[in-house]
């Protein structure tokens, strides 16, 4: 019974994920390229702005940008799209009784797939700057994925559930994510916080994990304390988010 229920949940998430992936690519010519174009365009803009116009010299800045923007895209896309997950699937929620959380899981995994599909591009930049993937990847790639996913899911549970009751949250989230982007060392490095603002790295659930990705891609040593900090955030957000979702999800069918 439990085995079937687990198998069912896995199949449900997989079926929803495959639907999203297939549906997204079936009707666009460039397909996969679109998911790369957005972060690459942003990287190009920030490179010109910071490196050429403000003339701030940051070592290997194109790689710094790419190694920060691609993992950030996963956060930004998942959190932004999670606001609408339940509302966009109103028909399903009103008429079937499958576990609604599967919609969130498949949406966040969908963005993970896009992130992973962009890793070859990051590796291309690494090779350009003479940096090679090392043995740490075997441990840290899965670890950072799990930590980042926990943070994203926790936030997504809270935001998506609240948005069913309070639709304005969608707009607030868009603004919030932009603010969050500038509070996270993505277009700047950790050193540029100049020690005085290090608390920002601790109060920001994704700062540790994003800096982890960047260090990994740049062949630098990873700050394990910051990754641990993100992991703690992930555990807290995921438990709080899931508990909240469990409390309110029975009302979705009549409100979406």
């Amino acid at each position: 019974m439990i085995a079937r229920s687990l198998e069912y949940r896995r199949d449900l998430i997989a079926a929803l994920l495959i639907k999203e992936l297939r549906a997204r690519y079936k009707r666009t010519v460039l397909g996969y390229a679109w998911s790369l174009l957005n972060p690459l365009a942003m990287a190009a803009i920030y490179f010109v702005l910071v490196n050429r116009i403000f003339a701030v010299q940051i070592k290997n800045y194109p790689l710094v940008l790419v190694a920060g923007l691609f993992p950030w895209q996963w956060v930004a896309n998942s959190v932004t799209s999670s606001t609408m997950v339940f509302i966009a699937n109103a028909g399903l929620i009103r008429r079937t009784s499958f576990p609604r959380a599967a919609l969130l899981v498949s949406a966040t995994l969908n963005d993970l797939v896009h992130y992973l599909a962009s890793v070859p591009v990051i590796i291309g930049f690494m090779l350009w700057f003479g940096i090679y993937p090392d043995a740490r990847w075997i441990i840290f790639v899965p670890l950072l994925i799990v930590v980042q996913w926990a943070v994203i899911m926790g936030i997504a549970f809270i935001i998506s559930s609240c948005n069913v009751f309070f639709r304005d949250l969608e707009r607030i989230t868009t603004i919030g994510v932009t603010l969050w982007f500038y509070m996270t060392p993505i277009i700047y490095t950790r050193d540029m916080l100049s020690g005085r603002h290090d608390y920002l790295l601790i109060v920001n659930p994704v700062a540790g994990v994003l800096l982890g990705w960047r260090s990994l891609f740049m062949g630098e040593s990873i700050d394990l304390m910051l990754v641990l900090c993100s992991a703690v955030w992930g555990a807290v957000l995921l438990s709080v988010g899931y508990a909240f979702y469990r409390r309110v999800q029975w009302r979705f069918a009549e409100l979406v």
């Binding site: 198998e7 069912y8 199949d11 449900l12 997989a14 079926a15 929803l16 639907k19 079937t96 499958f98």
Partner: peptide, 12 residues
Amino acid sequence: TLNGVLLGMTKR
């Protein structure tokens, strides 16, 4: 497949 899973069947 999608509809069957949404209505409660496993993929198998």
